[in-house]
């Protein structure tokens, strides 16, 4: 048995499975507690209930924060994808002075601690501009941190797009604008959708920056944070979390399907992963 394991990378298999358990442990627990008929988040489980899910609907602060978060996530993902389209096209198609530094700066938020992003925007908006915090300030921050992800996804789209396809359209009489509409856009559409979905998911889940920049209307994570202090609210948060996880998984699966379809359509080889 152990000889077989060693030969087929079996120990690595076992490790990989254990690692996945470690990765998924919190996510598996979530629905357990969301349907558990007890206000205490602990084992043993007490019985099945859907009460916590019903409790979600009667909280105006919660529904308000969901609405705020949705508006912010939609706006940020559209802005980030538009900026990402520009950056990805410039990066893949053109050589220009200052290309490295400019594209590098755009990607910086990927490695910058989020608190630095939050603090620095707070300083500019509040201490220097004296502007009030609102959903817009959160959108500014979220667009900033979503753009690098959009660039990474759309870079891949543009790289798998044969330049001569666009040239062929021009050659056949189309203008640059109609070429973009008839050839480029349909071929990078899966990348655009993936970018929108990923950016949406990031923004919806982002807490650290939102906490610094949120105005009178808190985002959903900021609301959740405020509720984590109250033990009796926790089961409702578990129910909310379950819904969020399910929604994230659906969105990400859609994004992955779109990404693969895009690669297949362009006839490229799958190299895996969003990042």
């Amino acid at each position: 048995m152990s000889a077989w394991l060693a030969k087929r990378g079996g120990w690595l298999w076992a490790y990989a499975v254990a690692y996945l358990v470690f990765l998924y442990a919190p996510i598996f627990l979530l629905p357990l507690f969301a349907f558990n008929d007890s206000t205490v988040i602990a084992f043993p489980l007490q019985g099945f209930t859907t009460e916590w899910f019903k409790g979600l609907t009667g909280v105006p602060a919660l529904t308000g924060s969901v609405k705020t978060s949705l508006i912010i996530a939609v706006t940020s993902s559209v802005l980030a994808t538009l900026l990402g389209l520009c950056a990805a096209r410039a990066g893949v198609r053109y050589r220009f002075p200052g290309k490295g530094p400019i594209l590098g700066l755009i990607m910086v938020p990927l490695v910058l601690p989020e608190i630095i992003v939050g603090v620095s925007l707070l300083v500019v908006i509040v201490s220097i501009l004296g502007a009030p915090l609102s959903s817009w300030t959160v959108i500014l921050g979220h667009t900033l941190i979503c753009t690098p992800f959009a660039v990474a996804i759309l870079n891949a789209s543009y790289q798998s797009l044969d330049t001569s396809l666009e040239e062929a359209a021009i050659d056949l009489g189309e203008t640059p604008a109609s070429t973009f509409r008839l050839v480029t856009l349909p071929l990078i559409m899966p990348g655009i959708v993936a970018s929108l979905l990923i950016s949406f998911t990031i923004s919806l889940d982002e807490f650290i920056i939102a906490f610094f920049l949120t105005g009178a209307e808190p985002t959903l994570p900021v609301y959740i944070w405020s509720q984590l202090r109250f033990p009796q609210k926790l089961p409702i948060i578990m129910a909310l979390g379950t819904i969020l996880v399910a929604a994230s998984v659906v969105l990400l699966t859609l994004a992955e399907i779109m990404r693969r379809r895009g690669l297949r359509r362009a006839g490229a080889k799958d190299t895996g992963g969003f990042l």
Binding site: T201, D205, F207, P221, M238, G241, L244, S248
Partner: peptide, 9 residues
Amino acid sequence: IPFWTSYLI
């Protein structure tokens, strides 16, 4: 996948 699910929770 787990990375993309609610960080706070």
